[in-house]
Computed example of a mutant assay.
Amino acid sequence: MCVAILVGGVPGVLAGLAVGFGTHRWLMRQRGTQAPRLAEVEVRTALAPAGDLLAACLAAGAGPRESAEAVGRSLDGPVAERLRQVAAELRLGGEPAVVWRRLAALPGAEGLARCMERAGISGVPAVESASRIASDLRAEQARAATARARRAGVLVTLPLAACFLPAFLTLGVAPVLIGLAAGLLGHT
């Protein structure tokens, strides 16, 4: 609409339509590229609590399959869904080395899946390693959040610089330069 008003007439309407269409396509492309990233963030956010719950179930004496089933039923989202799938396949006699790879396919879940796989195959206690992995996942989340906050702080300063720098140049530097130039030109 602004383009149509600024340009005016039929060329303005055509330019407005072109800008609107281009903006729509750009927004759709942005949404398409952000969807996988948002899904990965959702998975990584759910992994630490799932790891804590798996460790608690294992500490209570449940096996890897029972732990996966209990945690899968108590949570929502892609991690819980994958845990329910793993538990169902293990209940039906699936090979732990193959089944736990389905959990490992989620971004960031490799360590937790390996830990649960080892516990399911060899019976090695996995409470400490599952707790450590959950703690590592939480620390990774904190580092990523700090990095995003720093990046946001930098991105917030860009519009401020775009506004204040021209104002500073216009109101602060330009009068001094004009005064100096007038002084130099007036004395020669």
Rank of each mutant, 00 (worst) to 15 (best):
A87H: 05
C57M: 10
A97D: 07
W100A: 07
L92F: 12
A70R: 04
A55N: 02
A80N: 01
R82T: 15
L58S: 01
A88E: 14
R101C: 07
L54N: 03
A56Q: 12
L92Y: 12
A88N: 03
A97W: 03
E81P: 04
L58G: 03
V79G: 05
L75N: 11
R84W: 07
R102S: 14
V98R: 14
E69F: 03
R73L: 07
W100H: 09
G72I: 10
E69P: 01
G94M: 12
L75R: 15
G77H: 12
S67R: 01
G77I: 04
P78L: 13
A88R: 04
R84T: 12
L92M: 05
R91L: 14
R102D: 11
A68G: 09
L92W: 10
A60K: 04
V86M: 13
G94H: 01
G61H: 10
A59N: 12
V79R: 10
G61Q: 00
E66D: 13
G72N: 10
L75Q: 15
R102I: 06
L92V: 08
V79E: 15
S67C: 13
E95R: 14
A59V: 04
E66Y: 00
L54Y: 01
A59P: 00
A80M: 06
L75P: 03
G63N: 06
A56G: 05
R73M: 08
A62Y: 00
A60Q: 06
P78M: 12
D76F: 08
A88P: 03
A62N: 06
A62L: 12
G63S: 15
A62R: 02
V71S: 06
S67A: 15
A97I: 05
A68F: 08
G63H: 01
R102M: 10
E69R: 06
S67Q: 04
A97E: 09
A97P: 08
E69S: 04
Q85A: 08
A68C: 15
A80S: 13
L54A: 13
L103W: 05
P78F: 02
Q85D: 13
V79H: 08
E89T: 05
R102K: 15
E66A: 03
A60G: 11
A62V: 03
L54K: 04
D76Y: 03
E89C: 05
A55W: 02
R73D: 09
R101Q: 15
V98L: 14
E81G: 15
V86Q: 09
P78A: 15
S67Y: 03
Q85H: 13
E66W: 00
L103C: 13
L103D: 13
L92C: 02
L92G: 00
V79I: 01
